[in-house]
Each structure stands twice: as C-alpha cells, then as structure tokens.
C-alpha cells in the first residue's frame, strides 16, 4: 500500500493524490449517517417497493400480485386527483411563499426601526408545530371568520372557507404559507446581507432609483437563494400532510387529499400494497423532478 502510493506520488497523477490524501477519519464521519440512512430509509424503502408487487394488507398472509396494483392505480381517479391537487397546491404555495418572503426580507434588511424585534416576530410561526397551527386556523376559519362575516353582513364570509369544496385549498395555501414564509425569509435575509454595499453606492451614483436597484441589483444577486428556496419549498409542499389533516382532513369530500394522505390511508385502511405502489410511483416522480431541477440549475455557481 505505502509503496504503491509512493511510486504514484512520483508520477503526480491527480487521482492518486486524492486516494492518498483520504483520511480514514472521513469514512468514520460518514459511517453513522450511512448506517442510519440505510437502516431507516433505504431498507424500508426497498421493502415497501417489494410489497407493492404483492396483495399484502400490512399484516398476515400475502401473495404475489405482479403489476395488478400499478394497473389499478392508473385507472383510479382518486389517486389522479390527489396528484393534481398536490402539484397545484405546491406550485401556488411556492410562489406565494417566495414572493412574500422576498419582500419581507427586503424590508427587514433595510434601514428601519426595531429590525431585530420585527425579525423575531416574523420568525415565530416557524417554531410552532404544524398540527397546532392547523387546529388554531381551523377554529378561526370555522368560527371566528363566519361570526365576523355575520356581524359585518358579508354573506359569503358566513360559511367557512373550509366547507367549500372549490375554495378549501386556498385556506390550506394560506396556512401553509404562514408557516413556511419564515424559513424562506431567513434564507433571503442571509442572501441580502451578503450583497456588498458598494454596488448599491455605485448604482446610487449612477442615478438608479430604489426600485431599479431592487430589480437590477438585488434580484439578480439573490437569484441563487431564490433557486434554493424554490427547490426546498417545492419538495416540502409535495409532502403536505399535517396541516391538511388539521384543517380539512382531505375534505370537503375528497377535494383536498394530498398524495401523502392517500398513502397513509392505505397504511391505516388495509390497502398497504396498493398504496406502496402509489408511494413507489411518487418516488419515481420525485426523482424525475429532482433531476429536472438539477439540470435547470446546473452551472449556477451559487449551488
């Protein structure tokens, strides 16, 4: 071992240098995560994919069923609807969250009074658990808003937003955004403070207005952070679960059932293999989206 490295060092080939320089300590750093990841994610994932080809209900006897579950899924309107809902919801929420978070971040990094106090207030929603937020908003939507509507004589406000099959998703977007904005906000603040002040000075001297500075300097310089926020946000919203459970539980009717909810329903309702097939398809879709996002952002030095 030592002799080969010695001779290769003489040749100075790049790969030999990297091989020699690897300290065993790095593998040791990797090991715990690798073991945990394999045991907690990879193995159960593979087991789940295996069971998607059976008729298992999660317990007891099972038999191989081939592609039966996959065939059934593609003709299941409920599953299709959950995909449409989840993707529509994720796209809208990502847009709402990023616009609000970006504008807030611009405000909170400018020269205003009580900057620290305001930042703290805006970050509070992030530390509250999703299910608690959902139940509190559930109460607001079902009781407080309708009472306010009744008192003010606004008839469309008298029925809960959550009870309207066509509009319940808006309530979910609002609550999810309320919780997700702080995370994105922090990343934007970090991005904004990293922009050197002299570029603004230069722009000022050239006569650029504040709005032009925002569009021509701030926006391009935080573009990398926008990409991070969109990818992280979109990934998170695709897994939407707790807030929906607390707000509508998939209702009214089946109008707000997310993919994660249908998968869990199979776990609880004796449709284990079928929903494992659904989860497998969702996994493939998620991988495709990740590859797409990677290829779109490749070359940006910010990542």
């Amino acid at each position: 071992m030592s002799t080969t490295t010695a001779t290769r060092r003489g040749q100075g080939r790049p790969e030999s240098r990297s091989r020699r320089r690897v300290e065993p300590i790095f593998y040791f750093f990797l090991l715990p995560s690798l073991v945990l990841f394999t045991l907690a994610i990879t193995v159960p994932g593979l087991v789940g994919i295996f069971f998607s080809f059976t008729d298992s209900i999660g317990i007891g006897d099972w038999e191989f069923a081939g592609l039966t579950n996959y065939i059934a899924i593609f003709s299941d309107p409920a599953i299709l609807q959950s995909y449409l809902f989840t993707f529509g919801f994720s796209i809208v929420t990502v847009l709402v969250v990023n616009v609000i978070a970006f504008l807030l971040a611009v405000g909170l990094t400018s020269q205003i009074r009580m900057k620290t106090a305001l930042r703290t207030i805006f970050v509070i929603p992030m530390v509250v658990s999703g299910i608690i937020i959902a139940y509190v908003f559930n109460f607001l939507f079902s009781n407080s808003l309708p009472s306010a509507g009744a008192a003010a004589g606004i008839s469309w406000l008298e029925t809960s937003l959550l009870a309207n099959p066509d509009l319940a998703w808006i309530a979910i977007v609002v609550v999810t955004a309320w919780q997700a904005v702080p995370g994105a906000l922090l990343i934007y603040i970090a991005g904004l403070v990293s922009i050197p002040g002299d570029v603004y000075e230069a722009a000022e001297i050239d006569g650029a207005s504040k709005f032009q500075q925002l569009l021509k300097i701030t926006a391009p310089l935080v573009a990398g952070y926008v990409v991070i926020n969109i990818i992280l946000g979109f990934k998170g919203f695709l897994n939407a679960y707790d807030i929906i459970v607390g707000l509508t539980n998939g209702g009214p009717g089946t109008s707000t059932r997310s993919i994660a909810m249908t998968v869990i329903a199979g776990f609880n309702g004796g449709d284990y293999a079928y929903q494992m097939a659904n989860a497998t398809i969702f996994f493939v879709v998620a991988v495709l989206i990740s590859l797409l996002q990677l290829s779109l952002t490749r070359g940006r030095n910010t990542l």
């Binding site: 009870a163 998939g250 209702g251 009214p252 009717g253 059932r257 329903a265 199979g266």
Partner: peptide, 15 residues
Amino acid sequence: PRTIPIMNYTQALVL
C-alpha cells in the same frame, strides 16, 4: 372497506 373514502363521499353529497 375503509380504503374507499366513503365518509368523504357522503360529506361531498350533502355539500
């Protein structure tokens, strides 16, 4: 069977 969301369906009916 519970895997069919019958409760959600009946809720949709009255709504």
